[in-house]
Write a protein that binds this DNA or RNA. Structure first.
Length: 325
DNA sequence: AGCCAGGTAATCC
DNA sequence: GGATTACATGGC
């Protein structure tokens, strides 16, 4: 796998137009998220790759005066429509225009939410992935351990994605639906170790080539998503809450079910329907945001993929460049 | 050894 | 409809 060097092409100033406080650190970096190599975070700077059609972009993100400053690096011909796409993509991915007041009013009434709210005031949902990419992530999370999810993600991105270097950082980048379409189900199973997921992942490209992320905006999305083989209620809810940014949606799995059971009922586990009912009662229209705050608070003091010390970026780069060999 | 993971679809009644 | 089961793989 070759290391693709990206050159600086643009700087975008993206104002935070949503109301209330803005927690830039926990909006860009989520303590509960497993390591993918698609992004890297230090306390003051984040780097992330985005696929924009055939273009591969590397973005450095910083924050100053209620503005996200995005330095765009690319491998090819950077056109005005790429700039417009990235502006919208970044604005949506990190909820820069989203208001928090409605959730905050509800959250302040719930004692269990007191600490998460204090720790994360102004945190938005983060989803740099588009619908295709988040569907792949959610598929890899189904009924397995994070250890194996991480392995499968690494295999897929190493074998079928890209490795890029820009602004001193090395990162992985996604494959597009068209690129994944060229990979056989047999390869996904034997080489990428996907098990029974191989057959369903092999059918993802057809749907996402037909349904571009920008076009997935109409109603009944949860039902449309579940037309994809391998996408059930959980994965569809993850797509809806993350890529479509529906603040009322959350995908309930055995992991967050136990976290929410503790927070809501002070019990080690609870019935899924009881949890769903309670979340919707306490946070009508904002249960997904509430679940996000509870889950991230669980990992605040023991992040799955901790922040990088700026001095350790060299080691980060070496590690990624060696796994690609 | 067996059980269980950040589920889903097929098949039963 | 709701309940039950197979499905790949790997860590504990």
């Amino acid at each position: 796998m070759t290391l693709l060097h990206l050159d600086h092409a643009d700087t975008l100033q993206l104002p935070v137009t949503g109301d209330g406080p803005f927690d830039i650190l926990h909006t860009l970096w989520k303590p509960s998220h497993y390591a993918t190599g698609l992004e890297a975070h230090t306390p003051g700077t984040s780097w992330r790759t985005f696929r924009v059609g055939d273009l591969t972009t590397g973005v450095r993100l910083r924050y100053e005066d209620r503005t996200v400053i995005a330095d765009i690096h690319t491998n090819g011909d950077y056109k005005p429509h790429h700039r417009e796409h990235l502006k919208k993509r970044l604005n949506a991915s990190y909820g820069l225009a989203e208001d928090t007041a409605a959730f905050t009013v509800l959250a302040e009434q719930v004692p269990a939410m007191r600490e998460p709210l204090a720790a994360f005031a102004g945190m938005r949902q983060s989803c740099p992935e588009d619908h295709f990419e988040i569907a792949v992530i959610a598929l890899l999370l189904q009924n397995t351990t994070i250890s194996r999810t991480t392995t499968m993600t690494r295999n897929l991105l190493t074998h079928h994605g890209q490795l890029v270097h820009f602004d001193g950082i090395t990162l992985r980048a996604w494959f597009s639906p068209a690129e994944l379409a060229k990979v056989s189900a047999d390869t996904l199973k034997e080489r990428d170790r996907l098990g029974y997921r191989a057959k369903t992942l092999a059918e993802f490209p057809a749907f996402f080539i037909q349904h571009r992320s920008e076009d997935l905006r109409h109603e009944n999305l949860v039902e449309v998503f579940q037309e994809i083989k391998g996408v059930g209620p959980y994965t569809a809810a993850v797509m809806n809450s993350h890529a479509s940014r529906d603040p009322s949606a959350f995908g309930l799995d055995v992991w967050n079910r136990k976290i929410l059971a503790r927070r809501l009922f002070d019990a080690p586990d609870a019935d899924a329907t009881a949890i769903t009912r309670r979340m919707n009662d306490l946070f009508p229209g904002h249960a997904g945001t509430a679940a996000l705050y509870f889950v991230e608070h669980e990992y605040l003091n023991a992040p799955v993929a901790p922040l990088l010390d700026p001095d350790s970026i060299g080691a980060w780069n070496s590690a990624l460049e060696n796994t690609a060999a």
